[in-house]
Each structure stands twice: as C-alpha cells, then as structure tokens.
C-alpha cells in the first residue's frame, strides 16, 4: 500500500508531464530562448555599440582592462545566442537555462550597480539598439524585466525541457546529481 500511494507522488503521470510540457515548458522555452537569441543577435550586429554600452556601465575600468570589455563584447552576444537557440530546441535544456539564469543575475547586478551610482548614466543596450518594454536608459524597469525573466529560467533549470525537448531524442538524459525526480525528465516515457 505504501508503495502504491508513494508512486504517483514522486513520479507524476505521463499525461501530466505532457500537459506541463505543452502548457509550460514549451512556450516558456520559446519565449525565453527567443528573447535571448534575439538579444544576442541584435548585439552581434552592433559590437561597437555594445562595447560602448559595457564601458558605460563602468563595471570594469575601460582604460586598465579594455581587453575584458573587448572579449565580453564579442563573447556575450554569442553566449546569449547559443543558449537561446539551445533552449528553443530543448537541447541541453538544463545547461542552457543555467547559462541564461547566470546571465540574468549578472545583468541585474550590473543594472543595480548603475542605478545605485548616481554619477553613471548608461544605456541598457539589453537588446542592442532596440528597446523592448523599457526605455533605453537604465532604470528599475530593466531590473523588473530581468527578474520576470528569471522566473521561467529558474523553472526550466528545475524542470528541464519536458516532453517536447530535443533532449528526449538523444536517449537517456542527464546523469545529474540531485533528487531522482529532477533527473531524466526529458527521457521519461521514451
């Protein structure tokens, strides 16, 4: 009896997992991954602008550590792009969600740094030279937007890609540490 009552609790039914995949994981992956792929693409098209924006944030000293800004300006758009596309595809879902989660936390920290320091007036350049939801100038709007994006990112790190993720097509999923029910989500039912 104990085994029977324990079973559905620790392992949700296949149908429920499908419902979750269709209603939550799939649309959230598309939205979050799409936002990041788009952000990466716009930044890639304006590396000079993006480098100026990073310099404007004054997180690193541009005169002493210009190479840091250079590498960040070239690398960060690609990180966003790669992680976003992987998330849309549902390939390496947890890893790309972790990357996006870390990026978001970094962005929030940088934004708050700019907001707190009265002498800095910087443009977000979050989506290159395009403004999404918020104005160009850094403000709490961007922080809220990033916190809102942090919610699906956290959810996807936790639940992974679900049934509609490409991870499933590649057999057994992550050999990850963690509670049993967080592992092998994508491969379940395969």
């Amino acid at each position: 009896m104990s085994a029977a009552s324990k079973q559905p609790k620790s392992k949700p039914s296949n149908g429920l997992l499908w419902v979750e995949s269709i209603l939550l994981q799939f649309p959230l992956r598309l939205a979050l991954g799409g936002a990041f792929a788009f952000a990466g693409y716009t930044k890639m098209n304006g590396v000079q602008s993006f480098a100026n924006a990073i310099k404007g944030f004054q997180v690193v000293d541009a005169d002493k550590h210009g190479y840091l800004i250079q590498s960040a300006a070239y690398t960060m758009p690609w990180v966003e792009m790669v992680a976003g596309v992987l998330l849309i595809l549902g390939l390496w879902t947890r890893a790309s969600a972790v990357v996006i989660w870390l990026l978001l936390v970094g962005f929030i920290a940088a934004l708050i740094h700019v907001i707190m320091d009265e002498s800095i007036s910087a443009d977000c350049s979050c989506f290159g030279d395009i403004n999404v939801v918020c104005d160009a100038a850094v403000g709490w709007c961007q922080v809220i937007r990033d916190v809102v994006m942090l919610v699906p990112a956290t959810y996807l790190v936790w639940r992974q890609g679900g049934k509609l993720a490409l991870d499933r097509a590649f057999g057994r999923n992550l050999n990850d540490s963690g509670p049993e029910w967080t592992v092998d989500r994508g491969g379940e039912g395969a």
Partner: peptide, 29 residues
C-alpha cells in the same frame, strides 16, 4: 554533466566570438 555543458556553451560562444573578432573591424575603446 550540467556544469560541463554550461562550460561547453560558454567556451563555444567564446570561440565563436573570437572568430568574429578576427574577421570584423576592431572595436574602438
């Protein structure tokens, strides 16, 4: 594992970015 994949994504992006840096005109800072 997930941490390895995270590193792979960032590393791959760094390589792609380095490639882009080689073919595009340099950044003025």
């Amino acid at each position: 594992t997930t941490p390895q994949r995270v590193l792979a994504i960032v590393g791959g992006a760094f390589l792609l970015g380095s490639g882009q840096a080689l073919i595009s005109k340099p950044i003025t800072l």
